[in-house]
Write a protein that binds this DNA or RNA. Sequence first.
DNA 1: CCGTATCAATGAATCGATTCAAAGGAATTG
DNA 2: CAATTCCTTTGAATCGATTCATTGATACGG
Lengths: 335, 335
Amino acid sequence: MRATSIKDVASHAGVAVGTVSNVLNYPDRVAAKTRGRVLNSIAELGFVRNDVARQLRAGQSRSIGLIVLDIGNPFFSSLARAAEDAAAEGGNAVVLGNSGHDPQRELHYIDLFEEQRVQGVLISPTGDIGKRLAALAGRGTKVVLVDSPAGTGEFSSVSVDDTSGGYLATKHLLDLGRRHIAFVAGPQHFHQVRDRLAGAAQAVAEVAGATLEVLQAGDLTVLAGRSVGDELVSRDRAALPDGLFCANDLLALGVMQSVTMLHTLRIPKDMALVGYDDIDFAASAVVALTSIRQPTALIGRTAVELLAEQLEDPEAKPRSVVFRPELVVRASTAG
Amino acid sequence: MRATSIKDVASHAGVAVGTVSNVLNYPDRVAAKTRGRVLNSIAELGFVRNDVARQLRAGQSRSIGLIVLDIGNPFFSSLARAAEDAAAEGGNAVVLGNSGHDPQRELHYIDLFEEQRVQGVLISPTGDIGKRLAALAGRGTKVVLVDSPAGTGEFSSVSVDDTSGGYLATKHLLDLGRRHIAFVAGPQHFHQVRDRLAGAAQAVAEVAGATLEVLQAGDLTVLAGRSVGDELVSRDRAALPDGLFCANDLLALGVMQSVTMLHTLRIPKDMALVGYDDIDFAASAVVALTSIRQPTALIGRTAVELLAEQLEDPEAKPRSVVFRPELVVRASTAG
DNA sequence: CCGTATCAATGAATCGATTCAAAGGAATTG
DNA sequence: CAATTCCTTTGAATCGATTCATTGATACGG
């Protein structure tokens, strides 16, 4: 049982294959009467165009490869959704690859996508794959780096300025009149954590009399945040920071939990609190959490657009777009 | 600048195209010496097999279409990841479609996937697309329904038994000796809400003296849960349920927030609390939340397996797999 | 009525990999 | 040495849609 092809349609309608093709691609090249007959046959036979054959002829597929570190992470699922939306607008589909931080799988997907002749690859790299990507690009497949520094400028890229985010959060605390700032850090091998701290330090340096303390959390989780919170609660009132900036929302929520549970410190009166990422739960926490929002959707959309740019003009120089994160003020700093 | 093809490799290595193809697909049909020469040429020219051409010849692609309601929802992103893992094991890729509950977009993706001749479509349907799916299947593309009742048994399907989940949650509360159970419902047009309530009712009916009250929340969100919590806190102690089962974790967390904030009711002593979905935040709530876990990863994997089953034996009868959700006991019911 | 311009329709060639019948060559056997 | 078997390699045919030079038909102007 072979699927019906353009040939079947042609013979059923009593025309040549080229005519059927024209009906599908350039309807007004075909006389109305003929077009009607062909469309009838298509409906009658339940013909569905074989895009594989079309792609072979065209030498171009209608899909874009997207390789993310972890699709279970809201950052990437939101990004994927946006990319997928933007691609759909251009009539393209997104093929998803989840590397799960595994360089092996990452390479596997690059291979797969190259064989499938995707138009381009949007990738949030995990391994050291500069060479592989260069080879890929050398053979004509466009590459856009996502949530990753631009590197050598060889490829277009989209990223978010974490230093600026750290600055923004800390400046906000300082603007509220807080002077004893503490940064709750996660593991320092995450470049995000380092950059956010750098931004915080910069903001503090600009204000005379402001101090910055670094509290090291073991992890970027709610639990780790809770133990930082416990430590804070047990301190002398005088030794307390009056402004707390956490490396991500999970830490901030953990701190908030331990603090509100014991009822010894009031947020934001005694201590103002800022998180990072603006996850869905930030808004619905016991005390709604001020946070730094990353424009995930915009990142995904921009990645697709940068790709489109490269496809339209293969000679175009790669572009790097760096987004500025955004401060979202809520109750945890509203006092 | 055309990409290098099998022909280029053949002439470079001084063999026929068929031989190159054999090296790629049946290496031991080719003499070691020849094979070596061909592999050399492949490496030298940087040849990458064009999967589009291969697919055309084979009449079969190496991809699976996945259409979900919302990839931003952790349920679906986890499902997608698992599907994608399972597909990768079989050497296949997953093409992602996000319908966003929009029947229009859903149809668009079905069309796209059929044109791309995907091996099969895994779909969590939103619109009334029985006919479209039947047509699709009639032309040879396999269909597996995901997180959706089996319907007429025309297609294979994977789903979770929400009634059983509701029963499980409520039975757990009853087993703890609680007798005044309340169910916090969301909008009743979600079949999940209805089924969970039905399960709860069933469990209550089995225990003499147990009562079931239904509290209607306007939404399945933390905020809606918080107003239900406020209402509970304002009640006479005597009128309080001692066991509360919420239609999902967000509601449960909302209730928990308002209750712990006011410190009038203790969880689980005064009121035991059970949620549904076991989202990541359930475990890290102020009082760790007992919940009903849905095996999202297993659902995704099983969907791919059911598809594989259909592909291997096109005559095989569609199968429906129904998973039983699982009770995860934590502090909110541990007393 | 002829020449020309316009519009439709045709169908062979093409994309690149796979398949498979056929041929070539080496080795084995009687 | 001829016959047979086994192992390699060959290359035309194929998948299905698109392209484009060519043909055929019609209309129009002079």
